[in-house]
């Protein structure tokens, strides 16, 4: 499956916070993020997983075929004021499972991210 690059911005994180109900300020407020020891504002882990799901859906050309999707949130996606790119790539295995990688600044940010599809 063709890798794709998605831009993550702080504006998108604010929109995602409103849409998801996760208003944890480490995803919106630089001062709070730094105060808890983070390098800066970080994306919600579920935002990154949502990008992985978007990648699978758009690669398949439809939403609603994913039966399972999950990942470990192994590294934060740090989002500076100007935004940051993440690269999403997928490989479909013989059993139909899609293994997804998401990297930011060359670092893998999700562990064991994979999706299975309904028949």
């Amino acid at each position: 499956m063709e890798p794709r690059t998605f831009r993550v911005t702080r504006e998108a994180l604010v929109a995602y916070a409103a849409a998801s109900g996760d208003h944890n300020p480490i995803h919106q407020d630089e001062d709070v993020a730094v105060a808890v020891g983070l390098p800066g504002v970080i994306a919600h882990g579920m935002y990154t997983l949502a990008l992985a799901a978007r990648y699978v859906d758009e690669s398949l050309g439809e939403t609603g075929r994913i039966a399972t999707i999950g990942a470990k949130f192994t590294k934060p996606v740090v989002v500076p004021v100007e935004g940051v790119d993440v690269v999403v790539a997928g490989t479909q295995k013989d059993d139909g499972t899609i293994a997804v990688t998401v990297t930011c600044e060359g670092v893998s940010v999700l562990g064991r991210c994979q999706a299975t599809l309904r028949g």
Partner: peptide
């Protein structure tokens, strides 16, 4: 929810997450 991830929504099923 969909537009926050930069995608567009067609009114169909919601994303898996």
């Amino acid at each position: 929810f969909v537009e926050a991830t930069g995608a567009s929504y067609d009114g169909g099923p919601a994303p898996a997450t």
